[in-house]
């Protein structure tokens, strides 16, 4: 595969501004995605039977992920880093150009932030290089199926009202792609998983209010710069309600959180044996433990 420049999709300065603004206007319950990702992080980190001298939480805000690491006693120091200065983190960094020296960290955690980088493969390589051998990377990203209803409703309304189409919902990574990206970035023992679920809303506007409170409204560079008309949004809400309502009138919104973990390679890790290095034939191995009939 040839190296090409990553497409410029996301307006990172706008994203930082949106996140900073969202902090000043919290909305009850709108952090449900982050809470879900953090619960999962807890489950994934708990069984890891080691402590990490130096951990970095590349987060949306200082806090939740770092707290899990501290509570579980998994790291000696936890440094928090975020994209906007209002996050209350120890550092302000852009995940597209990380400021960490090679092999300087033992644990890197990123919760629901990496879906908005242009060059995810590049960022993963940077993270892997920043990890010491046998260092661990744990991430959660908004995944491919997320907001598919919103994407469809906005697109249909835009075609109707303006005759054109502009990108309004960001493309999200699929769970299989993410596994491949981890591998290409040089992570050992990569594991990915997908958590798909439906959240129900009274109207499209409640969904959009949640997204705004997450600082996650349209950060695309190619977004339409003309303010959209009220008529457009009303029509989109109508289409959303027509196509995605449950019998009780509530509207479905799909979310998918894809999680990933990978280790910086180390000789102590399990590896596949070299082809041809077996000392017992496959037939013998299969005979030694007969398979049950119904398999």
């Amino acid at each position: 595969m040839t190296e090409t420049a990553a497409p410029h999709l996301f307006d990172r300065a706008l994203l930082a501004a949106r996140r900073a603004r969202a902090r000043t206007r919290p909305r009850e319950g709108a952090d449900f995605l982050l809470r879900r990702a953090i619960d999962d992080l807890d489950d994934r980190l708990l069984p890891v039977m080691r402590t990490f001298p130096r951990a970095v939480d590349l987060g949306l805000a200082a806090g939740p992920a770092a707290q899990v690491v501290r509570r579980l006693g998994k790291a000696e120091t936890v440094t928090t880093a975020a994209l906007d200065a209002e996050a209350g983190a120890d550092l302000v960094v852009d995940e597209e150009a990380l400021p960490f020296p090679p092999e300087s960290l033992d644990l890197v955690i990123s919760m629901l932030s990496l879906q908005f980088v242009d060059d995810l493969p590049g960022t993963l390589v940077q993270i892997r290089r920043a990890l010491r051998p046998d260092g661990l990377f744990l991430a959660a990203l908004l995944g491919g199926d997320s907001l598919r209803e919103l994407r469809e409703a906005l697109a249909a309304a835009e075609v109707e009202t303006t005759g054109g189409l502009s990108p309004r919902v960001a493309p999200f990574v699929g769970v299989r792609d993410l596994g491949g990206l981890l591998q290409r970035a040089g992570f050992a023992l990569p594991v990915t998983d997908s958590d798909r679920f439906t959240v129900r809303y009274r109207s499209m506007f409640d969904l959009v209010a949640d997204l705004r409170a997450m600082g996650a409204t349209n950060p695309l560079v190619d977004r339409s710069r003309r303010p959209s008309s009220r008529r457009f949004f009303l029509r989109a809400a109508e289409i959303y309600a027509e196509r995605f309502a449950d019998p009780d009138g509530r509207l479905r919104a799909t979310f998918e959180i894809v999680s990933a973990s990978g280790w910086a390679p180390h000789e102590s890790q399990q590896k596949p044996a070299k082809p041809g290095s077996a000392t017992v034939s496959l037939a013998t191995a299969l005979k030694a433990r007969p398979l049950p009939d119904d398999l």
């Binding site: 130096r54 440094t79 120890d90 550092l91 150009a97 400021p99 960490f100 020296p101 300087s104």
Partner: peptide, 15 residues
């Protein structure tokens, strides 16, 4: 600045 942070950082552009 926490001095421990300093040793954690390099220039993100030139590394």
């Amino acid at each position: 600045l926490d001095p421990r942070l300093l040793e954690l950082l390099i220039c993100p552009l030139t590394r």
